[in-house]
């Protein structure tokens, strides 16, 4: 059932002379894959979703769902014909329809009986069974988002797009829902793109993660690749602290501190030691790179070093190429 999605050099500009919102983006999402698209607000990631769904038209480039072009120089498939599902940031639940009718809205080709069965099983899947007759305003925030997800998935779309689906929820609920949604999408084996500005969301949920900035993709890869091997400072800092060593970006937990010289080490002066609860943060300034710079090291043994003392830093085994 699932289908791949491909964007070829897609360009979108809202005002004639401004910078494009989406700048010649090429991207392929494999069938059944969940791609997390992460970037700051205003980076153009929502526009990208709207282009894929057909709510906006690209100025140039082509979008293909499976082998079929849906937008391009010659073709244009309106959103309602694309069979692409979308979960909106605010859920976009129809306030005048019950839970059941919200889901049935996308199932107009199915018989009533078939609908009912499908709706019930989907509601079960997200733990909303028995809520059929309720109205959206009678649901909690998490319930609403779950409903939004199954409403989008009910018509068995070729691709489902999630636009910041957790942004209006509190952190605990967010982690919960994140797991649920991931499970449902995987269970139904749907191709999906999820847009988020939260890097935790992206790294946890995405099979692959794409970093989006100023209308184009800076880096794309698995969670591990993107986290461990950022291609530039922007990608590196997006996911947390990173230390520049040569032309490489090193995560704080990838470094260790030694009390004495060893091969492939760098001399540092300990500036500050902080206990951040989860881990201990050690701020050091690398002497030979730039004394004004500071590196952060997580959870390293102190070996009796105090603030002001000199130590030696080297990469952990798993980071060495």
């Amino acid at each position: 059932m699932s289908t791949s999605l491909e964007l070829v050099s897609v360009l979108k500009r809202y005002t004639p002379h401004a910078n494009p919102a989406v700048d010649r983006v090429s991207l392929r999402v494999e069938a059944g894959e969940l791609l997390a698209l992460v970037g700051q607000s205003g980076s153009g990631k929502t526009t990208l979703l709207r282009l894929v769904s057909g709510l906006e038209r690209p100025d140039a480039g082509e979008i293909r769902v499976g082998d079929e072009p849906v937008a391009g120089a010659e073709t244009w498939v309106p959103p309602e014909k694309r069979n692409i599902g979308m979960v909106f940031q605010d859920g976009a639940l129809f306030p005048h329809l019950t839970v059941e009718k919200n889901i049935r809205y996308g199932l107009r080709h199915l018989s009533k009986a078939a609908c009912a069965g499908k709706i019930d099983s989907l509601l079960c899947l997200v733990g909303l069974d028995g809520f059929q007759k309720r109205y959206p305003h009678e649901l909690s925030g998490g319930e609403r988002q779950r409903l939004a997800v199954i409403r989008a998935l009910a018509p068995e779309p070729k691709v489902v797009l999630l636009d910041e689906p957790f942004s209006n929820l509190d952190p605990a609920l967010r982690r919960n829902l994140r797991g649920d949604i991931h499970r449902i999408i995987k269970e139904l084996n749907t191709t999906a793109i999820m847009v988020t500005h939260d890097t935790d969301d992206a790294l946890t949920v995405g099979d692959r993660v794409a970093v989006f900035k100023d209308g184009h993709i800076e880096q794309i890869g698995t969670s591990t690749e993107v986290y461990r091997n950022p291609v530039n400072g922007y990608c590196a800092r997006l996911f947390g602290p990173a230390n520049l060593l040569g032309n490489q970006w090193i995560r704080p937990e990838q470094m260790e501190l030694l009390p004495a010289y060893a091969p492939e080490t760098h001399p540092v002066v300990v500036r500050e030691i902080r206990d951040a609860g989860r881990h201990r943060e050690i701020l050091v300034s690398p002497q030979e790179v730039d004394p004004e710079e500071s590196w952060i090291i997580h959870n390293a043994e102190l070996h009796g070093l105090k603030v002001g003392g000199t130590g030696w830093v080297r990469l952990k085994e798993d980071r060495k190429a």
Binding site: S53, G54, L55, P78, P79, E80, K81, R82, N83, I84, G85, M86, F88, Q89, D90, A92, L93, F94, Y105, G106, R108, R151, A152, P155, P157
Partner: peptide, 11 residues
């Protein structure tokens, strides 16, 4: 809001 867009995407 985005309700009509949601409707479009639901076919």
């Amino acid at each position: 809001g985005s309700l009509d867009e949601a409707s479009r995407l639901l076919g």
